[in-house]
Write a protein that binds this DNA or RNA. Structure first.
Lengths: 184, 184
DNA sequence: AAATAAAAGACAATGTATTGACATAAAATT
DNA sequence: AATTTTATGTCAATACATTGTCTTTTATTT
C-alpha cells in the first residue's frame, strides 16, 4: 500500500539517479527521495553534533554562540532577541545556554541602553581569548569534514542548503491567518 | 589576523560563487565557505526540528524511530544496537526515547531470541496504526519542504549530503590506533 | 574449565531544546 | 493620560542527548 514502484516518469530521472550513485533498488518515487533527504539531514546533524563535541570540545550551540559573538562588528554586543533569530533557537533555550556560558565567564549580559526590557550579549575577554585559541582545531575540523569536497562542490552544497532552509522556513507561515478573527 | 582576503585563487571560483548567488561581500576564502556550510547545517537542523514538531506532531527522533521500525522487513523487530547505529544516536539516548514511546504504547522491547543480553524493538499494533495515520501529514510536509526543488535538485542535495556525512563520519577514525599498545 | 575481556543495555548526572507561564517595559489604542 | 496589547527576557516542567558507571551475558584467552 505504501510502496508505489512505477509512476510513469520518464527514464531521464532514473538515469540521473543512477548517475548519482543511488542504488537502483532504492529508487521508488519522489516520496522516497524526499524521505531519504529528510532522514539524511537528521543523521548528518547527529554526526555533526557528536563530531563537534569530539573534535572542538564544544556543543554545536556553544560553537554557534561564540562564533556569532566573535563576528566583526559585534564587539559591543548583540541583542538577545537578534541572537535567537540568527541562531534559530528559542529564547528559552538560548537563556539556558547563556547561563552556562556566563558561569564559565565566556559571555556576559548587560542591559540594553535603548530598551529596558532587552539585553545585550557579548564576549568577555576570557571568552574571546578562548574562542581564538580554538581556531586551529576548528579550521582543522572544517578541513577534515570537507576532505573530499572540491571548492565548487562545497559551494553547491551550501547553495542547496540555503535553498532548502528557505523552503522549510516558509512552511509555518500558512496557518497564521486565523490568528486575527476572535469576534465580530 | 583571522580574515585573509586574497589567496591567489583563479577567478573561476569567484565566478562560480557569483553564479550561485552568493553576495560578493561575503566571499573571502575556503575557510569562510566551510564555516558558512557548517553553520547552515546547524540552522537547517534547528528548523527541521521545529517544523517537524509543528507540522507532524513528533520530535525528529520519534519520527526517525517510528519510520525505521515501520520499514518493510522489520515486522519482527530490529535489535536495539542496530537501531542506534541506523539512527546515529547513543544507546543512552535511544533508551530514553524508547521509554517514552513504550509509555505511549507505540513500541515494545522483547528479549532477543539468540542473545540474552540483547533486545528486539518493534512497533505495537497501536504504534503501527498511529504511524500510518501520520502519513498524509508527513508527505505533505515533505512536499512543502521541497516546494521549490526540482526532482534533480533534490537528488543532488541528497547526493551531497551523503558525501558530506561520509566525510564527517570518517574523522574520528584517525585517533583510534593508540588503543592497542598498553605494555610490551 | 577458569579467568579475562568485550558487548548489550539500563541508570544517573548534566547539558540542550521545547512548551507554558510569568513579570516588566514599550507600543498601540482609546 | 489611562488602558490594552505586544515584545523581551526569565523561570519551571518535560523531552532529548551526552558522558560515565554498572550489571548481565557472551566471546576470548589461557
Amino acid at each position: 500500500m505504501t510502496s508505489l514502484i512505477a509512476t510513469g516518469r520518464p527514464d531521464s530521472r532514473l538515469a540521473a539517479l543512477l548517475d548519482k550513485g543511488v542504488p537502483s533498488m532504492a529508487i521508488q518515487d519522489d516520496k522516497s527521495v524526499a524521505n531519504r533527504l529528510f532522514f539524511r539531514l537528521f543523521q548528518a546533524s547527529n554526526i555533526l553534533q557528536k563530531q563537534t563535541v569530539g573534535q572542538v570540545g564544544l556543543s554545536t550551540v556553544q560553537w554557534a554562540v561564540l562564533g556569532a559573538l566573535s563576528r566583526k562588528g559585534y564587539e559591543d554586543g548583540i541583542s538577545f532577541n537578534q541572537l535567537t533569530e540568527y541562531l534559530i533557537v528559542s529564547r528559552q533555550n538560548l537563556d539556558g545556554v547563556l547561563k552556562r556560558l556566563e558561569r564559565d565567564d565566556h559571555v556576559k549580559r548587560i542591559p540594553h541602553p535603548d530598551d529596558k526590557r532587552a539585553r545585550l550579549i557579548l564576549l568577555t575577554d576570557k571568552g574571546r581569548a578562548f574562542w581564538e585559541s580554538l581556531q586551529p582545531k576548528i579550521h582543522e575540523f572544517y578541513a577534515q569534514g570537507l576532505a573530499n569536497f572540491t571548492f565548487d562542490e562545497t559551494v553547491s552544497l551550501l547553495h542547496y542548503l540555503n535553498k532548502f532552509q528557505k523552503d522549510l522556513e516558509a512552511i509555518a507561515m500558512q496557518e497564521a491567518p486565523n490568528a486575527e478573527r476572535e469576534e465580530s
